[in-house]
Measured scan of single mutants.
Amino acid sequence: MQGVVKVNSALNMRSGPGSNYGVIGTLRNNDKVEIIKEVDGAYEIRFNGKVGYASKSYITIVN
């Protein structure tokens, strides 16, 4: 499943599905991501070869 990031500035990509996990990357508006699955209000995603988590509130599914 594919998604597009929709933010005003940037969205943190984290090592786990919550803000208490470390930041492993930054997503920008209109970045395209692969959605692997939904976990606790976040999506597990793949972006630029990395797998991490981002809030589903800022990712629009575009299948």
Score class of each variant (00 low, 15 high):
residue 1 M to W: 13
residue 54 A to K: 00
residue 8 N to W: 06
residue 51 V to P: 04
residue 8 N to V: 12
residue 40 D to Q: 09
residue 34 E to F: 11
residue 43 Y to T: 01
residue 41 G to A: 06
residue 55 S to Y: 06
residue 55 S to W: 09
residue 59 I to G: 00
residue 52 G to D: 02
residue 5 V to F: 00
residue 18 G to N: 12
residue 61 I to D: 03
residue 9 S to D: 13
residue 17 P to K: 04
residue 61 I to L: 10
residue 28 R to G: 07
residue 49 G to W: 02
residue 32 K to R: 14
residue 10 A to R: 14
residue 56 K to Q: 07
residue 37 K to F: 05
residue 52 G to H: 02
residue 58 Y to L: 09
residue 25 G to Y: 06
residue 54 A to T: 08
residue 33 V to Y: 01
residue 62 V to A: 08
residue 23 V to A: 06
residue 44 E to V: 11
residue 22 G to D: 15
residue 39 V to K: 06
residue 27 L to C: 03
residue 30 N to A: 07
residue 43 Y to M: 03
residue 32 K to G: 04
residue 41 G to Q: 09
residue 12 N to E: 15
residue 43 Y to I: 02
residue 8 N to A: 12
residue 23 V to L: 06
residue 26 T to K: 12
residue 15 S to V: 08
residue 3 G to K: 01
residue 44 E to K: 12
residue 57 S to K: 15
residue 5 V to T: 02
residue 55 S to G: 10
residue 14 R to S: 06
residue 48 N to A: 10
residue 35 I to P: 00
residue 8 N to P: 10
residue 39 V to I: 12
residue 32 K to I: 15
residue 50 K to F: 08
residue 20 N to I: 09
residue 52 G to Y: 03
residue 42 A to G: 07
residue 23 V to T: 09
residue 10 A to G: 11
residue 52 G to K: 01
residue 44 E to I: 11
residue 29 N to T: 07
residue 51 V to C: 09
residue 9 S to I: 13
residue 15 S to D: 11
residue 60 T to N: 10
residue 33 V to F: 03
residue 56 K to C: 07
residue 10 A to F: 15
residue 4 V to R: 09
residue 34 E to V: 11
residue 19 S to H: 13
residue 25 G to D: 13
residue 29 N to F: 08
residue 1 M to G: 07
residue 12 N to D: 14
residue 7 V to M: 04
residue 26 T to A: 07
residue 49 G to C: 06
residue 57 S to D: 15
residue 55 S to L: 09
residue 10 A to I: 15
residue 8 N to S: 13
residue 35 I to H: 00
residue 45 I to E: 00
residue 34 E to L: 12
residue 8 N to E: 13
residue 51 V to D: 05
residue 59 I to L: 03
residue 17 P to N: 06
residue 26 T to F: 10
residue 32 K to H: 12
residue 55 S to H: 10
residue 40 D to T: 07
residue 62 V to N: 07
residue 40 D to K: 10
residue 43 Y to G: 01
residue 17 P to G: 03
residue 16 G to D: 04
residue 3 G to I: 02
residue 60 T to L: 12
residue 50 K to S: 07
residue 26 T to R: 11
residue 9 S to Q: 12
residue 63 N to V: 13
residue 36 I to K: 02
residue 24 I to Y: 00
residue 20 N to L: 07
residue 21 Y to K: 06
residue 40 D to V: 06
residue 37 K to Y: 05
residue 14 R to P: 02
residue 54 A to L: 10
residue 63 N to K: 12
residue 2 Q to V: 14
residue 63 N to R: 11
residue 58 Y to N: 12
residue 48 N to G: 10
residue 20 N to P: 04
residue 28 R to S: 10
residue 41 G to H: 08
residue 58 Y to M: 09
residue 17 P to E: 03
residue 61 I to V: 12
residue 16 G to W: 03
residue 27 L to K: 01
residue 12 N to F: 11
residue 2 Q to E: 11
residue 9 S to M: 11
residue 25 G to E: 13
residue 10 A to L: 14
residue 5 V to R: 01
residue 50 K to N: 09
residue 34 E to I: 12
residue 40 D to L: 11
residue 62 V to T: 11
residue 50 K to Y: 07
residue 60 T to F: 14
residue 49 G to H: 05
residue 56 K to L: 05
residue 51 V to W: 06
residue 9 S to G: 15
residue 62 V to Y: 08
residue 27 L to W: 00
residue 15 S to W: 06
residue 63 N to S: 13
residue 21 Y to R: 05
residue 20 N to W: 12
residue 7 V to T: 15
residue 6 K to Y: 06
residue 42 A to P: 00
residue 12 N to G: 11
residue 30 N to G: 15
residue 13 M to Y: 05
residue 60 T to M: 13
residue 36 I to F: 07
residue 59 I to K: 00
residue 16 G to N: 06
residue 57 S to R: 14
residue 29 N to C: 11
residue 33 V to C: 04
residue 7 V to D: 03
residue 36 I to L: 14
residue 50 K to E: 10
residue 4 V to W: 05
residue 50 K to D: 07
